[in-house]
Simulated assay, not measured.
Amino acid sequence: MGDTFTTLAQIGNPTPQAPPLSDKLLQMVRYLTWFAMLSGIVSIIYAGGRFAWEKWSGGALQSPKMVAGAMIGGVVATSAGTIMNAIIGT
């Protein structure tokens, strides 16, 4: 029992190494992040225009929900990296 523990204790702390093709995966993640930010900006602009149209035409106001949803989605999308860094660590 003592020899097994000594052998396991001598393994040490391995250094992390990036897997093969990880640069392509990170590039895809950057593209998806860019797309999420672009879609959030477009949705806020669309909801703002729709809000102005609904206010001008006197229709039912559906767009404040759209603006709130776009803003909440933006907060979640932009904080995903921070949350993962806090969970996984550096």
Rank of each mutant, 00 (worst) to 15 (best):
M1G: 12
G2A: 14
T4V: 15
T6K: 11
T7I: 08
T7A: 12
L8S: 00
I11C: 01
G12Y: 01
N13E: 12
N13R: 08
T15V: 11
T15M: 02
T15R: 09
P16I: 01
P16E: 08
P16Y: 09
A18H: 13
P19T: 01
P20H: 02
L25A: 15
L25H: 15
L25F: 14
L25V: 11
L26S: 10
R30W: 00
T33P: 07
W34R: 07
F35G: 03
M37I: 05
M37L: 05
L38S: 14
L38V: 12
S39R: 11
S39T: 11
S39H: 09
S39E: 13
G40N: 11
V42L: 15
S43A: 09
S43R: 10
S43K: 04
S43F: 09
I44C: 02
I45F: 03
Y46C: 05
Y46N: 05
G49R: 04
R50G: 09
R50H: 15
R50S: 14
A52S: 11
A52V: 11
A52Q: 04
W53A: 12
W53G: 04
E54K: 04
K55A: 14
K55P: 01
W56V: 12
W56T: 14
G58R: 03
G58W: 00
G58L: 03
G59S: 05
G59H: 03
A60Q: 08
A60Y: 10
A60V: 04
K65M: 13
M66S: 07
V67R: 04
A68V: 06
A70D: 08
M71L: 01
G74R: 00
G74L: 03
V75W: 09
V75L: 07
A77P: 02
A77K: 06
T78L: 02
A80Y: 00
A80G: 02
G81D: 03
G81V: 09
T82H: 11
T82S: 14
I83C: 03
M84D: 05
M84S: 10
A86M: 14
I87C: 08
I88M: 02
G89H: 06
G89V: 02
G89M: 03
T90I: 05
T90V: 04
